[in-house]
Design a binder for these strands. Sequence first.
RNA 1: CGGGGUGUAGCGCAGUUGGUAGCGCACCUGGUUUGGGACCAGGUGGUCGCCCGUUCGAGUCGGGUCACCCCGACCA
Length: 493
Amino acid sequence: MAKELEFLTKRSEDYSKWYNELVVKADLAEQADVRGCMVIKPYGYAIWEKMQRVLDDMFKATGVQNAYFPLLIPKSFLSREAEHVEGFAKECAVVTHYRLKTNETGDGVVVDPAARLEEELIIRPTSETIIWNTFKNWIHSYRDLPLLINQWCNVMRWEMRTRLFLRTSEFLWQEGHTAHATREEAELRAQQMLKVYADFAENYMAVPVVQGVKSETERFAGALDTYTIEAMMQDGKALQSGTSHFLGQNFGRAFEVQFLNRENKPEYAWATSWGVSTRLMGALIMTHSDDNGLVLPPALAPVQVVIIPIGGKPEQVAAVDEAVAPVIEKLKGYGISVKYDNADNKRPGFKFADYELKGVPVRLVLGARDLENGTVEVMRRDTLEKETRPLEGIAEYVKELLDTIQQNIFEKARRFRDAHIYECEDYEEFKERVKDGGFFLCHWDGTAETEARIKEETQATIRCVPFGVEQTPGVDMVSGKPAKFRVLIARSY
RNA sequence: CGGGGUGUAGCGCAGUUGGUAGCGCACCUGGUUUGGGACCAGGUGGUCGCCCGUUCGAGUCGGGUCACCCCGACCA
């Protein structure tokens, strides 16, 4: 410990800096040499892949099927739904040409002005329009409904300011798009998918979330209702981690998606859309990580257990190789991903620190001492506690320990969040306290004016009208007008 | 688009009154090490963001330009 290197900025010192460093140093992602874009590195992508796999199974369990639609959307499609285009117009990348040619000076290429597209193509910021344009051909009868489609893809939104995972110009996500015969069915679907997201966030990511519905001003462009899950980061800010929209018949009407009902009458289809993105990676990182690095929930960790041998001499390592072989087999038999790192070019201390930085949930260490005693050192990443246990039965112990860790980090995050949720009735007090972060439950008169004033004066926004909160009427803390319910207000990412 | 800042080795930085390019980390080689980020010795690596100007001479001075970062407006 001679050299207490500052590998990572302390969380408390500069939260943003800590986050950025962590993402890069834990080998998750890095800034690309393209404006606002990110390179997701193999380790980060492995986590995303695990998320994808779990979510995909959850979607399919509700009857959803995967499909794929084009990256490029004709401009005319996007402009079919008025509110929708208005919401996205300011952040669209546009394809205007289809050819380059050699520069006249011969040292490079320029856009060939002769190759201008008659109609510009938009790189999808979201796919409602192109999908509903397709749905028109797929839906003719109530028997074709519900139509439950999901696609995994990339989208592009030309954001002003970007941050790795939290907001990048291009990001990976899934977008579900469903069509229904009735309003009720569509509304239920939108709510159902929100529950799937909440389930995933809490039971796999170990990230507690508040479910709720967005205010009118915060709604998705073109939606009648937007449902959200809001997670609290360790600096007390909110992160919208998933959304589900009830789109009414807006897209059905805009794209003339009509079906004949049982009475042989034409009706417009009812729509939902819902999505989660690589932003979930941001939520995962900012919810659990500490000054030593990432803390990954066992359910999503690409490597759940790392085993490190001690000893420099080849014969010492060989002895450990032999001793751990059956343990590795047994762990794998339980479906646990294990990495045995007997590389000789890194010292044990380096490996310890490195795997902590990468958030591996459990570490096993064996040296000559252990071989003699038939023991193994077990370290759990969430608490950093070490203990020495008999090698006999270690696989079973680790299996249970992984479950314990999964539980523990969720409980820890929930306790943190609950300790930072406040009911507040006084605006002056609110203004003072909201600076330090946290979720505030406040009565709201339901007007956009009040909402705008809060945002302007405090940078905090109404995150949602939360579900599962016992609602009693009261007085709006800003306007003094009567309020029917409380809303969740916070500063956010 | 407003306000602030930074561009020098892969990363982080220093570079004085203008004089021919430096440190730490990383990387490579050899050796000694290995129970919490090893040490010693040697080595590789640079059109100083770009353009123009001043000068015998520019990383350094002047003008322009580009890029990126931070704080706002926008947002999964």
